[in-house]
Design a protein around this nucleic acid. Structure first.
Length: 527
RNA sequence: GAGCCGUUAGCUCAGUAGGCAGAGCACCGGACUUUUAAUCCGGGCGUCGUGGGUUCGACUCCCACACGGCUCACCA
């Protein structure tokens, strides 16, 4: 495809596929494809269906008992997969076939298949190709469970070679940008993502076992509320308005509780226009759940149950739910520690904010410990800063941190015994926040005040202050019953349960900077 | 956003006080009916991330930029 035009395009304006260049191997494979068409009249891309009776894992399980040289012809196996390796020996060929379940050896024999079928395989099948196979299982002299192939149908031809078979694909950039190559080459990566799927199912099952129903609320809306974060902005042409991608699902879900939906949850992507690093991706998966008539202690029990069940799908049943994260054993089995933010700060810094009524005193004590302050912080803000600076990192084992100041909890109900604080917890694992829950504020008058408070912060330059949501006030003026709600950072939970160092290792396609003019403001030429 | 490190064949990686760019796997041709990182014989494959500079000569030295990784700062 190196027409004059194509060449010019590549030089003058990088195309999205620039960087994947026509190399020797691809040229050879395209030639081979043409020869396959002209010599055999076979177009592998016209194959539409293959009646697979059994995946490879079935063969391994059912025929594990076969002895050396024993063949089982009781059942014709019709299976399929990608050819990973080929070992050609003249009139016999060994290959490894992989599907989504397993990897099994194939044995092609001249005598067994007949010259025509055998020669086709020898001549036209390459590593990377997809094939449909029929044959009988047997065990080789070397003890390897193998399928003796009777028929081989070339289902699809690969024009690009597989990554190196021994070292796999290591280049992190290629692994993230072209995850399909990573998944082909690295079975452990496939396993991480299978675990992710099982964890998500487990979370859904635990919630649904408690009568919680899954709902969907807008991702695109005119107001991004429910958290303190900067949203992504977009524009709706027909309506002529700015719109935002959601930063949380909270305010919509509580509207549904008002609307008498009972226990609801949503698991989906949130979007925050902030930095990227090992713990943060601009889009990430959150689960939020709301239970009427429940409180944050019920949410603690639910959090433990969700996480323990999720751990179980990773480690297996009847095993202690203790997992190693980056070399540290994390115990999800025993009840998680519960401690108030005030006590934890006192424990780690000696500063006791609970007895304090003076903001200046709190600032002085924090400043003495090296915390940078603007001089306007309340003692509650200082408490939070001290917690973030001196405590957070140390909470390695699962810990419920309770009693956050009202000032930093604009949607949480006050503690009736101490209105400056809320009935709230955050769950920390490995020094990172995994869950956040509280008794939902259902006093519309207080909620309005809290929003007004956030508005003042926004006007003072806090870009992450909460937006004022008049309709949400309207909703809870209709009456939100006493409700416990919780959010869980699903990606982080998956990271801890799969021993993944970066959030990019648990997202199929993590956000990456584009390589070319693609994504820039430049006009995409022609068309 | 800042600092450090990296970018060489399809993949994994070597490499040179500045002097024709290397290996293994993959690929191509040949041999081979129990191999499994098959083996044996022969072969091809590179804008050494991009753009400048220094130099007789740059993959190598210098500068800028791009992308990635790590650390830090903000956030989940």
């Amino acid at each position: 495809m190196s027409t004059q035009k194509g060449k010019n395009q590549r030089e003058d304006a990088p195309r999205p596929d620039d960087g994947i260049q026509e190399d020797e191997i691809v040229r050879q494979r395209k030639d081979k494809l043409e020869r396959l068409l002209s010599e055999e009249g076979y177009n592998p891309y016209l194959v539409e269906r293959w009646e697979r009776t059994h995946p490879l894992s079935y063969v391994r399980e059912r025929y594990s008992h076969l002895a050396q040289d024993e063949v089982d012809e009781s059942l014709l196996i019709v299976t399929a997969g990608r050819v990973m390796t080929l070992r050609k020996h003249g009139k016999a060929i060994f290959a490894n076939l992989a599907d989504e379940t397993d990897n099994l050896q194939l044995y092609f024999q001249f005598d067994v298949m007949g010259e025509e079928k055998y020669s086709f395989v020898k001549k036209w099948v390459d590593s990377g190709d997809w094939v449909g196979i029929t044959g009988y299982p047997f065990r080789t002299q070397r003890g390897e469970l193998t399928i003796r192939v009777l028929e081989c149908r070339l289902l699809c031809k690969a024009l690009r070679p597989l990554p190196e078979k021994w070292h796999g694909l290591k280049d992190t950039e290629v692994r993230y940008r072209r995850r399909y190559m990573d998944l082909i080459a690295n079975p452990d990566v496939r396993e991480v993502f299978r675990k992710r799927s099982r964890i998500l199912s487990s979370i859904r099952k635990t919630l649904e076992d408690h009568g919680t129903i899954e709902v969907e609320t807008p991702i695109l809306s005119v107001l991004a509320g429910g958290a303190n974060a900067r949203p992504f902005t977009t524009y709706h042409n027909a309506l002529g308005i700015e719109m935002y991608l959601r930063i949380a699902t909270e305010l919509y879900l509580k509207r549904l509780v008002v609307g008498m939906f009972g226990r609801v949850y949503e698991m989906g992507k949130n979007f925050r226009n902030e930095g990227l690093d090992a713990m943060h991706n601009p889009e990430f998966t959150c689960m939020e759940v709301y239970w009427p008539y429940a409180d944050y202690e019920d949410m603690m029990a639910l959090a433990e149950e969700i996480i323990r069940n999720a751990a179980e799908v990773v480690v297996g049943p009847d095993v202690p739910k203790v997992l190693t994260y980056q070399g540290v054993a994390i115990d999800f089995e025993k009840p998680f520690r519960r401690a108030s933010m005030l006590d934890l700060v006192k424990e780690h810094t000696g500063v006791d904010i609970s007895s304090m009524t003076d903001d200046g005193e709190a600032r002085t004590l924090a400043a003495a410990r090296g915390v940078e302050l603007t001089g306007n912080e309340s003692r509650f803000a200082v408490l939070n800063l001290l917690f973030e600076t001196f405590v957070e990192d140390r909470l390695v084992q699962p810990t419920f941190v309770t009693g956050h100041p009202t000032e930093i909890s604009p949607l949480a109900k006050r503690d009736p015994d101490n209105p400056d604080y809320t009935r709230r917890f955050e769950l920390f694992v490995c020094g990172k926040e995994v869950a956040n829950a509280f008794n939902e504020l259902n006093d519309p008058i207080d909620q309005r005040k809290r929003f007004e408070d956030q508005l003042l912060k926004k006007e003072a330059g806090d870009e992450e202050a909460h937006a004022f949501d008049e309709d949400f006030i309207n909703a809870i003026e209709m009456g939100l019953p006493p409700t416990g709600g919780m959010g869980i950072g699903v990606d982080r939970l998956v990271m801890f349960l799969t021993d993944s160092r970066s959030i990019r290792d648990v997202l199929f396609f993590p956000t990456m900077r584009p390589l070319t003019a693609q994504g820039s403001t430049e006009e995409p030429e022609e068309q």
